[in-house]
């Protein structure tokens, strides 16, 4: 029974990684850059929910909506100020800028909210379910997380397949210059990608903090890096890949924690990343990209 409950916890954690990984994978597919600050957008979203619910007594659903709006705006602003001027710059410069933005958000939160750990009260009202004569308990948060993840995944795939903006995203990720010649608003599409990714980050943040209710300015960075691992695992640029990679990584982490060592679980996750990159650098569902001379 304990194995099944670990598995369920793993899938639930994996769903959170999958939602975060979506932000990475979409931005990477379109802007060809690793948005290091994505994890810290999550953290900002969590602080918005925390301060509005605990401090101001706002309705949880309103506060989640507010957090999504704040994160969306933040994502677009970051893109405009820090990344857009560097479209033509070498990848190293863009990466260093992204690290700078990530650091900026962390230390900004540190100054405003302080370094102390805030205990996040779960905003998801869902009771635990007991199965098999109380032996197997599925937490309500875990079920909600998995459902939300599946809904987001399906909605996003439909959006990209069926709408004009979604098709524009595909076109930009395929070839930026050709898309521009075909009349696609490239800058607008990149902004839209950042907006969607950051909005999803806010939702992922609420789910993450509901499942693991501690909040510090560094809350977002580790899940962010792990979600990037998940995106790479599944094949970067691929939405179903992010889903599969996220779930697998969540299961590996929880099982590693349960059966090997809780202190080594991060090391296990990173070892998975390294092995994947060596054996299959394009990930499970990724396409191989040939280098043009």
């Amino acid at each position: 029974m304990s194995f099944i409950s670990y598995l369920i916890n793993g899938i639930s954690l994996g769903s959170i990684y999958a939602i975060i990984a979506l932000g990475y994978t979409m931005v990477y597919g379109i802007a060809k850059m690793l948005n290091f600050a994505h994890g810290d957008v999550i953290m900002i979203g969590c602080y918005v929910v925390f301060t509005t619910v605990t401090g101001l007594g706002l309705n949880p659903y309103l506060s989640i909506l507010l957090s999504v709006i704040v994160c969306t705006v933040l994502g677009v602003v970051i893109e405009k100020i820090a990344y857009k001027p560097l479209r033509k710059a070498p990848p190293l410069a863009v990466l260093i800028t992204a690290i700078g933005v990530s650091y900026f958000l962390q230390n900004f939160a540190l100054l405003i909210f302080g370094a102390d750990t805030k205990s996040f009260t779960s905003v998801i009202p869902m009771n635990n379910i007991k199965l098999a004569g109380d032996k197997l308990v599925i937490s309500g948060v875990a079920m909600v997380t998995v459902c939300i993840c599946i809904v987001i995944m399906l909605a996003l795939m439909t959006f990209i397949k069926r709408t004009k903006a979604g098709q524009a995203m595909l076109a930009v990720s395929e070839d930026k210059d050709a898309a521009q010649l075909m009349g696609v608003n490239v800058n607008g599409t990149i902004s839209l990608t950042f907006a969607i990714g950051s909005g999803l980050a806010a939702i992922a943040g609420v789910l993450l903090c509901s499942a693991y209710p501690t909040l510090t300015p560094y809350t977002g960075s580790m899940p962010g890096i792990k979600a990037f691992t998940a995106a790479v695992f599944g094949g970067i640029g691929s939405i179903p890949g992010a889903f599969i990679g996220g779930i697998l990584l969540g299961i590996i982490e929880i099982l590693g924690k349960a059966y090997i060592s809780s202190q080594l679980s991060d090391a296990i996750v990173f070892a998975v990343l390294i092995i994947v990159l060596l054996v299959r650098p394009t990930g499970i569902l990724g396409k191989a990209v040939h280098e043009k001379v």
Binding site: P85, I96, T97, Y103, F104, L110
Partner: peptide, 17 residues
């Protein structure tokens, strides 16, 4: 650390924007 991060971003923008 806040100053460090601003320095990083500013240096990159100054060099490449």
């Amino acid at each position: 650390m806040l100053i460090y991060s601003v320095v990083l971003i500013a240096m990159m923008l100054f060099n490449w924007s």
